[in-house]
C-alpha cells in the first residue's frame, strides 16, 4: 500500500510549490490515473514515489515503510520494487529488444538462467517475442512502448509507474497499450499512470486523482478526466 501523508514539495532552486498537503492512499493492485494540466504536480508525485526527489514536508509510506527517510544508498533497492514507463520510451538504441529487457535483469544481479527464462516470457506477455532481435529504431512507436513495458515488468515490480505512456502514440496503438496495462493490473500489479489522455481515462473508468496547482482537488473511484479547476 502507498500512502501520502501531508506531503509538501517546494523546489528549492525556484521556490515553486509543486505539491501541497497531499493526502491519499493507494491499495495494492489498484489502477490509478493522475490527471491535471501540465505543471500541476502529477510528475512530482511519481518522482517522489521513486525518490528521484524528496519531500519538503510529510511522509510517504510504501507497505508501511516511510520512503522519505531511507538513506540514498537504499534508493536503488526501492526502485527495484517499481517499474517505470515514459512517454519517450527511453530505450537503449544500440541494443536489441531482448538486450534492452535483459539489461534490466542484469542490473539487479539476476542469473543467466533466470534471464533466459524470464525475458522471453515477458516479451511474450507484451506480444513482442518474435521481434526480440530487432533494434528499437526498427520498431513502431507502439512496439517501442511495449519494449519499455517489458523492461519495466521483467523484474516483477509491485508498482508500475507510467508517465504519459500513450503521449507519443496514435489512439489505436494507445488503446492496445492500455489493454496490456489492464492485463498487468489484473495480475496484481499496482499501476499509477500520469496522463492527459481524456479518451483513455473516460473509457477505462478507474480511480482518478486530479492535481491542480500542487493540490489534490479530486480523488474519485471510476472517475473521468474532466478538470475540476
Amino acid at each position: 500500500m502507498i500512502e501520502f501523508v501531508n506531503v509538501k514539495k517546494v523546489f528549492e532552486d525556484s521556490g515553486v510549490v509543486a505539491l501541497e498537503n497531499a493526502n491519499f492512499k493507494i491499495e495494492n493492485g489498484e489502477f490509478v490515473f493522475l490527471v491535471g494540466s501540465s505543471g500541476a504536480g502529477k510528475t512530482t508525485i511519481t518522482k517522489l514515489l521513486m525518490r528521484e526527489t524528496n519531500v519538503t514536508e510529510g511522509e510517504i509510506y510504501l507497505n508501511g515503510n516511510d520512503i522519505t527517510k531511507i538513506p540514498d544508498k537504499e534508493i536503488p533497492y526501492l526502485r527495484r520494487k517499481m517499474g517505470v514507463v515514459f512517454q519517450d520510451f527511453r530505450l537503449l538504441e544500440d541494443r536489441t529488444v531482448y538486450e534492452n529487457v535483459e539489461f534490466a535483469m542484469r542490473v539487479v544481479g539476476a542469473t543467466k538462467r533466470e534471464i533466459r527464462k524470464r525475458v522471453p516470457e515477458v516479451l511474450s506477455e507484451v506480444g513482442l517475442n518474435y521481434k526480440a532481435k530487432m533494434l528499437p529504431r526498427q520498431l513502431s512507436g507502439g512496439e517501442q512502448q511495449r519494449v519499455a513495458l517489458a523492461r519495466a515488468l521483467v523484474n516483477r515490480p509491485l508498482i508500475l509507474i507510467a508517465d504519459e505512456p500513450t503521449g507519443n502514440l496514435n489512439p489505436k496503438t494507445a488503446m492496445e497499450i492500455m489493454d496490456i496495462f489492464e492485463e498487468i493490473n489484473r495480475m496484481g500489479t499496482t499501476i499509477i499512470m500520469a496522463t492527459h489522455a481524456k479518451d483513455i481515462v473516460d473509457t477505462m473508468k478507474k480511480r482518478v486523482i486530479e492535481v491542480s496547482d500542487g493540490n489534490i482537488v479530486r480523488d474519485e473511484m471510476g472517475g473521468v478526466y474532466h478538470e475540476t479547476v
Partner: peptide, 16 residues
C-alpha cells in the same frame, strides 16, 4: 547520460 538515466530508474546501484 540517457543510459545512466535508464539505469537509475531500473534500480542500478551507484557502484554499478
Amino acid at each position: 547520460r540517457k543510459e545512466i538515466n535508464i539505469m537509475k530508474y531500473i534500480g542500478a546501484t551507484d557502484r554499478f
